[in-house]
Simulated scan of single mutants.
Amino acid sequence: MTGSDPLPPRHACAGQPLLGLTLLLVEDSRLASEGVRLLATRSGARLRRADSLASAERHLRAWRPSAALVDLHLPDGSGLDLLARLAAVRPRIPAIVAISGDPALEAAARDAGADTFLTKPVLSLSQFQRALLGHLPADPPVPLSSDCVRPDPAALHDDLAMAQALIHRAGRQAYVAAFLRGVARTAGDIPLSDAAEDLATHPGDRAALVRLTRMIEGRLDAVPAF
């Protein structure tokens, strides 16, 4: 990661308190990413997305973001490792935010170096804006929005299709279960969240695997693709 690039000048205004910022989102869920993209756009920030640790490293070798938002469950490892690396780089990225569908991971995220923690689903503009503004150089205060965003539900199709492709692969069920818990919470799908939690709690259980597989198939039939 380049370490000499200063933060660009900001000219925050009402309705766009993050104007002038560039954000790196490290998130494997298309649905969750779509929600954060809408939050960033409504707030005036530009967003780059990485869907894995490897992709994030490629971005960071050439570019220093104003802030980083890191999911903790990624297909090629733990976001905690990336949080620790970002926190150790000097000059440090001013705002390092951990995001997860599992609030029990907040302490571990902060220990790894996160400035703050957001529990999925992240849909509130004011919550998103406060999480970043609390750790950025102060600008004159501007009003924050009380609105919420609604990701395009078609993004859910991509997440379900990926889960379907991976769920029967050796060694991937734990990842898929954690991934789908976050996706289901963002989508407000309690039965899917419960089924993913069941597989996470009972890895290798045939009945839990079959139940979750059938749910994925049923939802893919009901959700439009992009």
Rank of each mutant, 00 (worst) to 15 (best):
V122Y: 09
V122W: 05
V122N: 08
L123F: 14
L123G: 04
L123I: 11
L123Y: 14
L123V: 14
S124H: 11
S124K: 08
S124G: 12
S124M: 09
S124V: 02
S126E: 13
S126K: 09
Q127V: 10
Q127C: 06
Q127T: 14
Q127L: 13
F128E: 00
F128I: 03
Q129D: 13
Q129K: 04
R130Y: 01
R130M: 06
R130K: 14
L132N: 02
L132I: 11
L132C: 07
L133K: 07
L133Y: 05
L133W: 02
L133D: 11
H135V: 06
H135F: 15
H135P: 00
L136A: 03
P137Y: 14
P137V: 15
A138F: 00
A138N: 03
D139H: 15
D139M: 14
D139R: 15
P141R: 13
P141D: 10
P141L: 00
P141T: 04
V142H: 12
V142P: 02
V142A: 12
P143F: 11
P143R: 00
P143I: 04
L144Q: 02
S146R: 10
S146K: 05
S146W: 03
S146L: 09
S146E: 15
D147W: 12
C148L: 05
C148M: 05
V149R: 11
R150P: 00
R150G: 00
P151N: 06
P151A: 04
P151Y: 11
D152N: 14
D152G: 12
D152R: 13
P153C: 00
P153G: 00
A154L: 05
A154V: 09
A154K: 12
A154Y: 04
A154T: 14
A155W: 13
A155G: 01
A155Q: 07
A155K: 03
L156D: 01
H157N: 12
H157G: 01
H157K: 08
H157L: 05
H157P: 04
D158H: 13
D158E: 14
D158Q: 09
D159G: 11
D159P: 03
L160A: 06
L160Y: 11
L160W: 07
A161Y: 01
A161L: 02
A161H: 12
M162E: 14
M162R: 15
M162F: 03
A163W: 14
Q164Y: 11
Q164A: 15
A165I: 03
A165R: 14
L166A: 07
I167Q: 14
I167F: 01
H168Q: 10
H168P: 02
R169H: 11
A170M: 08
A170S: 13
A170T: 10
G171F: 08
R172H: 15
Q173R: 12
Q173Y: 00
A174I: 07
A174Y: 00
A174H: 05
A174T: 07
Y175W: 15
Y175R: 06
V176H: 07
V176R: 03
A177R: 03
A177F: 06
A177N: 06
A177D: 04
A177E: 06
A178S: 14
A178Q: 11
F179N: 03
F179G: 07
F179K: 02
F179Q: 04
F179A: 07
L180I: 01
